[in-house]
Amino acid sequence: MTAIAAKGLTKRYGDLTAVDALDLTVAAGEFVGVLGPNGAGKTTLLEMLEGLRKPDAGEVSVLGEPAWPRNRALQPRIGVQLQASAFFERLTAREQIHTFAALYRAPGSAADEWLERVGLVAKADTRVEDLSGGQAQRLSIACALVHDPELVFLDEPTAALDPQARRNLWDLLADINDSGRTVVLTTHHMDEAETLCDRVAIVDHGRLLQHDTPAALVAAHAGGGNLEDVFLALTGREYRA
């Protein structure tokens, strides 16, 4: 089964074509990393896949249903982590995840379970403003997963994490994927993509440059290097926005 099927996806902002006739297919249960320099169009691509933005051209179907217009039947099946700051002000970690659970009509027990899975039981009564960057990141991932979605979008989930937190999060993400969920994440960490992802989609200037397994990409482009060498070979070394 196909989790995501995007065809000819295009989005323009004025003169800028953020996403340019992009085709992308993600199989159910697959773990896909979307890589690209800043300004490559990753976020716009994800927003169209999530149903937040209307494509100017092309079409997306997610879990067999059109992603646009906002599809109420689809939303409970998708989990999205946008940014570690997307929280209700002045709520504790526990109140936060219970609120999200209620929004998705998920049981409160699931909220407590997820708090435990991301190691935040000790911080349950801490307000989100007082959590460290890594704790907030883990909480926002737990909030994205509390309703047991089939498909999960994670936007740079390991940004601002220390190595300990990053490795623990890798285990968590691998677990999520092993339990049959489809995971799409964006990242700047090539080692992360190499370790976690079944396939990587390298995006630049709104186009899909490559979409293959890390091993195949390294074999074809790196000339004895790693995924980062592939990435730089494909997207160049100039500074980006």
Partner: peptide, 14 residues
């Protein structure tokens, strides 16, 4: 809007 909570709520089935 600043914290993107508005976006996040838009993605929830509410």
């Amino acid at each position: 809007r600043q914290t993107k909570l508005l976006r996040r709520l838009q993605l929830a089935p509410v």
